[in-house]
Amino acid sequence: MSWITKTFTSSIGRKVIVAITGLFLCTFLVVHLVGNLQLFKDDGGAAFNIYSHFMGTNPVIRTLEWVLVLGFGFHIYESYTLAARNRAARKVGYVDSRPSENSPWYSRSMALLGTLILIFLIVHMYNFFYRARFGDLDPDINNNDDLYTLVVTSFKQWWYVLLYVGAQIALCYHLIHGFRSGFQTLGLNHRKYTPIIRVIGYIFAIVVCAGFASMPLYFYFFK
């Protein structure tokens, strides 16, 4: 094995990949959330459809899309590899174990929360991304594909709303641990900044997830 393979297959090497891709995916969440805020513009979806047309056709975005796919791919693959290794490190477990006395449940459940998010991601990609890119959407008044109507009709179904809001709760807990954990893994721990990163992580997780959850709730209850 070369030193490069050795580095990235070591425990810390894999952790570093999870951390870098995780923090990268956080930046994606911000872009995705800000773009989706167009849904709240009361113009029958014209602004949202212009935005989604841009995202689906702009060459820079289409290139970065592959970076995003790689980001997700590495994050998921490395996390599962580490989780499998960690699970295998204790074949005989304890008869009496009380981890709730020394740590929060969501920090211990990152693989489970991640799996829930992955299931949501697959459903979500089929719902909107697949149909926007490969489906046959009707044109809106500007002759853009009318993704807005698809979103609105989807969010009129209670089980969609339940799935989407549930996924955001899982994402929120995943981010509360994941945000600060990413910095720690990269070695960015400092008595001055770590408490600040913790607070920013909480705010980031809650704002982002509440923002995403507000969309299905808004269309289900107020439209």
Partner: peptide, 13 residues
């Protein structure tokens, strides 16, 4: 790694 210890997930236990 060779001894078979797991990898840290920053839980703090």
């Amino acid at each position: 790694d060779k001894e078979g210890f797991g990898a840290c997930t920053n839980i703090g236990q």
